[in-house]
Structures are given as C-alpha cells and as structure tokens.
Amino acid sequence: MIKRQFIPFGDVKEKKAIIVDSMHPNGLVLSHWRGAPTPAEVRDDTSAAMVLHALRLNLPGLDLPYVTANHFDIDGFVGVWSLLNPEPALENEELLRLMAHIGDFRELDLNHPLAGEALKLVCWLNTRERDMFYAPFAADESEEKEAKRCVDKFRYFLREFGRVLQDPDWEKPVWEEEVADVLIGYRDMYKPDTKLQRFPDLGLIVIETQKPVHYYALFSRTIGFDIVLTCYEGNRYELEYKYTTWVDFASRPTLPRISLKPLAAQLNSLETSGYTWTADSLTETGPLLRLEGKDLSRMERYDHPTTREIHTSSIPAEEMKQLVVDYFREKYAGIAPKRYWSWEEVKELNKTIGR
C-alpha cells in the first residue's frame, strides 16, 4: 500500500498531489467545491465522503504520494487524515462521514446512532483549533495566508486525531463544554415554544425561538432546507443561506442563491429603529442578512449566533416573515431546483431577475 504524505498547498505546484476540499490543476481533486473537477463516480455532499468513496473504489489517481488542502476545517481534515490512514478510515467510515457533515453543514441529528461520538470528536477539533491555533477565518481575509498558516493545524491534528478517534472520552475535558452548549440548544429547539414554518418550494424554513443557540442545534431543525429565517424574542432576526448552496450538493437538488441585498433595501425602507439592514455577497460561504451586519468580520459571521449581538427591529415578526416569503416567492418564480449550479449560472440568473 502506498505511503502518502501531507504537503503544504503551496508545494502542489511542483509536486502532483491529491487535492482535498480545494482545487488545483496539478493532481486528483476530491472536493465538493462548486465546479471542482471531482470524478463523477465519487460525487458526494462532503469532500471527506468523496475521499472515503474513492478509497473504497480504489479510484485511479490515488497512487499519488502527496495529499494537500488549502485551508483547515473538519471536512477537509477528515479527508486528508483518511488518505493518510486508509485502513482505520474505512473501519470508521460512517463516523467520519458524519463528522464531516456536522462540521460543514452544521446539521446535527441525534437520532443517528453515531451522532454522540461524532459530536464529541467535532467539538474536540473545534476547541483544540481555537485554543491552540486560531478560529476559522481568523488567519486573514486572504486565502493565501490561510493556506500557509493552516499547515501547523494539519500537522498537529494529523498526529493526534487517531488517538482521540479510538476513545473520545480520553479528551472529555476538551470537548465537554461545547458539547453541553450544543445539547442545551438542541433541547431548546425541540421545546413547544419553538415554532417552525416550512416552505419546501422555496427551500426556506422559518424558526421562531426565544434566544440564539449553537449552530449545530439551530440547524438540527433545518435538514433538507437551504434558507433559514430565525426569529428570536423581541423582533430580532437573522436570515441566511446555508453552506449547502455554496458547494456542489450531491444528495438532492437545490435552488440557486439569490442576492439578499434588494431585500435589505426593502427592509431599510420600513425600519425605524435607527439600525441598518445589511446583506453579504451571495458568494460568501453563508451569507447573512441582519441589522448592522456590515461590521462583522468573516470570523464573526461564521461563528455561532450566540456570539454576536442581534439587534431589535421595528418590523413585527409576522410582517418580517411575510416579507421574506414574498421576496423569495417572487425571485424564484419559474426557477426549478437542480444539482450542480455553476457560479456563472447563479450570477447570470441574478442579473436576469434583477438585484
């Protein structure tokens, strides 16, 4: 069996490699990034799942001696670790697939028999990453700087993860605080005073709940949906596209992203609180529409709703919900869901329907 080695992303120019959760022409790409030239026979929702599928198929190109990625996150790390440790990876395939899904899409389903173990491992990675290195998107706005700085993360976790995978409880003091936070939020999401309204034709779900919770808890109620309007007590709102619409999502068709900026302008025409509605670019990993969102860094936007202030709007909840539903119903009129939208198609569509 070939012995593979992790290399920094910058080295892939000279060394042909397996490229995980990233893109580069010099090697075999196993990535769910939109437009990535991943072989069709291993397409899946996460990059790690593609890697595991490729290992099972012994996909041509896996004989390359080097593995790389241009950023560190749970999905990419699981994919890289699996290529360097193929036998234990395939022995733990379902658990690793679940880790990648929770890490990337933040959809936790505690009914899955391995969800508890996956959550411990994901929270161990999250906590160690934040405490020993830096939080996601904190390296810099520059992808090049992240590609260089993430190497230390990979080296540490590639060395330590196998030990923790064998028994996550060895590291309980590391993960227990975040796991507890997730479970408390998960319980809140299933309380009677948390209300859901689903609009499957729009890919939209509206969640009314008392207070912000950890994303793994919040998005536990959003499986199968791509747009989330969260309405908290006191007329506090956030609207966001999930990461499911940034990647080439394989398991189901999706609608294309529509710019949220015209909706922000419409809300500003009604808002009397003194705050301003802002919307991120549709190419952001998880675009947010919120009051005073322009001051958030990428790191803050990526972080959990519990970590950012959510301002009170003058717009009543029922009116807010109706405005959002009407906006998407108008914009998506005549557009059918499909798999594998290209960014060119998405941008052209937004020009056609008007920003």
Rank of each mutant, 00 (worst) to 15 (best):
V42I: 13
V42W: 02
L59W: 03
L64M: 12
N85I: 11
S47E: 06
L57N: 08
P88L: 11
L84R: 06
G35H: 06
V80H: 03
P37I: 06
H53T: 15
L62A: 13
A89R: 00
N58K: 15
P88E: 07
L84W: 06
A36D: 10
R43E: 08
G61E: 10
T38S: 15
E91W: 00
E41H: 04
V20R: 02
Y66T: 10
S47C: 08
P65V: 09
H71Y: 10
P86S: 08
M50F: 01
V67Q: 03
L52C: 09
P25I: 02
V80L: 12
L55W: 01
L90C: 09
M23D: 08
A69H: 09
T68E: 05
M23H: 09
S22D: 04
I19Y: 02
V51M: 04
L90E: 04
H24N: 14
F72I: 12
E41G: 10
L28S: 09
D44Q: 14
W81L: 08
H24V: 05
V78G: 01
N70L: 01
R43T: 01
R56W: 00
Y66D: 11
D45A: 14
L84F: 10
A49K: 13
N92M: 14
L90A: 10
W81P: 09
F77V: 12
V51Y: 02
M50H: 00
T38V: 14
P25F: 06
H71W: 12
L30W: 01
G27S: 13
S47W: 03
I19E: 00
S82D: 08
N26G: 14
A36S: 15
T38R: 02
S82Q: 07
